[in-house]
Computed example of a mutant assay.
Amino acid sequence: MSSPAPILRRAFAEFLGTGLLVTVVVGSGIAASRLSTDVGLQLLENSIATAFGLAVLILMFGPVSGAHFNPVVSLADWFLGRRQRVGLTLPAVGVYVVAQVLGAIGGAVLANLMFDVPTTFSTHDRATPATLLAEVVATAGLVLLIIALARTGRGAAAAPAVGAYIGAAYWFTSSTSFANPAVTVGRLFSDTFAGIAAGSVLPFIGAQLVGMALAIALAVLLFPHVTDAAEEIVIPQLDDKLLDDKETR
């Protein structure tokens, strides 16, 4: 079995990747609201930037950390691999989640600074029965997609596939598909187009956890031996020695 990069290196990749993802989401949302007056056009601009940005970030950081950028993805990775002791360990999940949340907050602050917007809590209430159902659907679809790609040996397609899914889910869900507890927390720190009010954060995270559980149940039903895929989520990490060798060339 390959030896992954040291946990601190992987955590730093998760910090940067999640932070830059939130910078893309919040920054493109601010830009869209300034450049366009039509809400539909603003959402289109925001969704396109997010889809492309997420795909690029997965390609950039995937070889180091797997490019989870999302606590529910990290939890699913641990849950699927725990019996065979593959994928993330539970302590590593804790490190990943802390890095993801801190990165998400930092990413929102960075976007605010770039657009000269004060960093304040959002007042955009989003939690309704409809949007919470949408978060269950959006998260379940995202996690199931990632597991399916890993289990069927198509991890190389994760970057465009995950980017495309999130871009589409902006439109087919009423919540605009947060599908990520860390991103949800990060977007609390920007009272802009992409923000979410404090009162909506915990309900959204609860719905996302339900979506994750649903995705795992569906994956177990649909893909035999799905637990073998834990090491391949989202993108297989390069062996630590191989990674170092490639960096020195």
Results as ranks from 00 to 15, higher is better:
His68Met: 13
Val136Pro: 02
Gly106Arg: 05
Arg85Thr: 01
Ala130Thr: 08
Leu88Gly: 02
Pro118Thr: 13
Phe79Met: 15
His124Ser: 15
Ile105Gln: 00
Ile105Pro: 02
Ala127Phe: 10
Leu113Trp: 10
Thr139Asn: 08
Pro118Glu: 08
Gly106Thr: 04
Ala130His: 09
Val109Asn: 06
Asp125Ser: 14
Gly81His: 09
Pro118Ile: 09
Ala76Gln: 01
Pro71Ser: 01
Ala92Gly: 02
Ala67Met: 07
His68Asn: 11
Phe115Gly: 06
Val93Phe: 00
Phe69Cys: 06
Val109Met: 11
Arg85Tyr: 03
Leu133Phe: 11
Leu113Met: 05
Val93Asp: 00
Leu132Tyr: 08
Phe79Trp: 15
Gly81Asp: 02
Ala130Met: 07
Thr119Arg: 01
His124Cys: 13
Thr139Ile: 14
Ala76Tyr: 01
Gly81Cys: 04
Pro71Lys: 04
Asp116Arg: 14
Thr123Phe: 11
Glu135Pro: 05
Ala67His: 10
Ala140Glu: 04
Thr123Cys: 06
Phe121Arg: 06
Val143Met: 09
Tyr96Val: 05
Leu133Ile: 14
Pro91Gln: 11
Gly103Ile: 06
Pro71Cys: 04
Glu135Gly: 03
Val136Cys: 08
Val93Ser: 00
Phe121Trp: 10
Pro91His: 11
Phe115Trp: 15
Ala76Gly: 08
Val98Ala: 08
Leu90Ile: 15
Ala76Asp: 00
Val137Asp: 00
Arg85Glu: 09
Asp125Ala: 13
Ala130Cys: 11
Thr119Asn: 00
Ala134Tyr: 11
Leu75Arg: 07
Glu135Tyr: 15
His68Phe: 11
Gln84Pro: 10
Ala67Phe: 13
Arg83Ala: 06
Leu75Tyr: 09
Val72Cys: 07
Arg82Phe: 03
Gly107Pro: 01
Gly94Ser: 14
Ala138Gln: 08
Val137Glu: 00
Thr119Ile: 03
Leu75Thr: 12
Glu135Phe: 12
Leu110Arg: 02
Leu80Gln: 01
Gln100Asp: 03
Val101Cys: 13
Leu110Ala: 07
Gly81Met: 02
Val137Met: 07
Leu88Cys: 03
His68Val: 01
Val97Lys: 00
Ala140Ser: 14
Arg83Phe: 13
Ala111Pro: 11
Val73Trp: 10
Pro91Ile: 14
His124Asp: 10
Trp78Cys: 09
Val136Gln: 01
Leu142Gly: 12
Asp125Asn: 14
Leu80Val: 10
Thr120Asp: 06
Leu102Gly: 13
Arg82Leu: 03
Pro118Met: 12
Val93Trp: 00
Val143Ala: 07
Pro129Cys: 03
Val136Ala: 01
Trp78Phe: 14
Ala76Arg: 05
Phe121Gly: 08
Val137Ile: 15
Leu113Ser: 03
Ala104Glu: 05
Val97Asn: 03
Ser74Asp: 08
Asp116Cys: 07
Ala111Cys: 09
Leu88Val: 06
Met114Asp: 06
Ala138Thr: 08
Ala76Leu: 01
Thr131Leu: 09
Ala134Phe: 12
Gly106Glu: 01
Ile105Tyr: 04
Val137His: 00
Gly81Val: 04
Thr139Pro: 12
Val143Asn: 02
Leu142Pro: 09
Gly94Glu: 12
Ile105Lys: 04
Ser122Leu: 13
Gly141Leu: 06
